[in-house]
Design a binder for these strands. Structure first.
Lengths: 224, 224
DNA sequence: CAAGGGTGTGACGCGTTTGTGACTGGTTTT
DNA sequence: AAAACCAGTCACAAACGCGTCACACCCTTG
């Protein structure tokens, strides 16, 4: 039997116990800032409340995208009202689509069933863009104005981490930790080489240099 | 165990005793116009109400930013309703972000946990302004009325220290210590050169001269 | 096992930053 | 008025930090 896992960032008005419907087993669970409380198998849907404009909801979106456990989840943003600007921002933050709230049990199921039967749920867009740069989490590919940037795995991780913290000086230590490097301990100077390789890759895709060196401190991804 | 200190300018509807959650110890305390009532170790979060008795929330924000004890705090502004203009003013006054009230226990914790688990939160966008001068601690950049001031590392440290102690004469010794210069001992006259270079940098960004010399004593950052 | 791409590291060279001494011009003191 | 004091500025050498390269060591593929 197919399993469909649905995660929500907030309680709904209606009770949402797990149940079976139409040959599928549906499970519901809360989704907190730390991510899902349990590991699941099978497709995963996340409904994220807009709750605090520009902040919590969008941030949650980005984190779901960055988290390896949930990178494959289908993320639906729950908007309170139909604001075009908000829709755009939701998609930019990595949401696959959106619904206009309030969220009800039938709204959730309709959404999931519709997408499942159409088979759309796999090629949903997972990307966000900063200026001319586009980062596609699903394809693990980056683009500069449509021109693909050829990146090695480590360079992609580096670019993603820098882009997730724009306009903010990241020390070499931050970057090493941000890429999850622990064993063996990495020499900080190695980061310089990473940056150099990343810059070269962006350049050879015709891009500019969004990576600014802050002498004696670290590096910044410059937005604007 | 990690400690997270949360300060609020007003009572909440719910009780907020100190407690332990998820390997972290949370402490709550009131935040008055004089600032925090106790010194704390570890990261500090401040939730400032838009309206508070005797003192506007914005003014409170500025004070937190100007006070050396709390300059590292993460300040969240609590708005009553979602007014874009108010949001802008909150951020300009030095708030790191904002939420739309009313504030509840879960709202506070979600916010703190979300930022904490983001990895680099140590310096969540943190900046403050004094007159025409803006100092961005996260991007390590200073501006004079939106015009960026090109500063070398030492000059930025100097400006930051001066701006953190406005309207107060700092001796050359204070400045040397404030910049953490120990080895080798620095000649006091060197400070003159620092000041000269900093003034020139501000000037070439179209700025005025907020640095006043106090003969035979030291220098002051003049704030009106 | 061989080949090849990805990655970490030491070393080299260059540009920038920075502390200092010296000189100058202004102000206070005697 | 002379002397003493003080701050602004310049030029310079030493130290520092960063970009880059070549190389060695993976780890994967055929």
């Amino acid at each position: 039997m197919d399993v469909v896992n649905i995660f929500l960032t907030s309680e709904l008005g209606e009770s949402l116990e797990d149940f079976v419907h139409d040959q599928r087993r549906f499970t519901f669970d809360r989704l907190g800032p730390e991510g899902p409380r349990r590991l699941v198998e099978g497709p995963m849907w996340a409904f994220v409340d807009w709750v605090m404009p520009e902040l919590a909801g969008l941030e949650m979106c980005r984190r779901l995208r960055a988290d390896a456990r949930t990178v494959d989840a289908h993320v639906t943003m729950v908007l309170e009202e139909d604001d075009p600007e908000d829709r755009r921002r939701a998609l930019r933050a990595g949401a696959d689509d959106y619904v206009i709230g309030p969220l009800t049990r039938t709204a959730v199921l309709d959404r999931v069933l519709a997408l499942q039967s159409r088979g759309v749920e796999r090629q949903a867009t997972r990307w966000f863009e900063l200026g001319a740069l586009t980062i596609d989490m699903a394809a693990l590919q980056a683009r500069w104005n449509e021109a693909p940037i050829v990146l090695r795995p480590n360079e992609f991780r580096l670019l993603r981490f820098l882009a997730e913290n724009p306009n903010r000086v990241l020390t070499r230590e931050d970057l090493i930790n941000g890429l999850g490097k622990r064993e063996p301990p990495i020499d900080e100077r190695t980061v310089d080489v990473w940056i150099g390789r990343l810059r070269r890759a962006i350049k050879s895709a015709g891009g500019g240099n969004p990576l600014r060196t802050v002498r004696s401190l670290g590096y910044v991804f410059d937005l604007n």
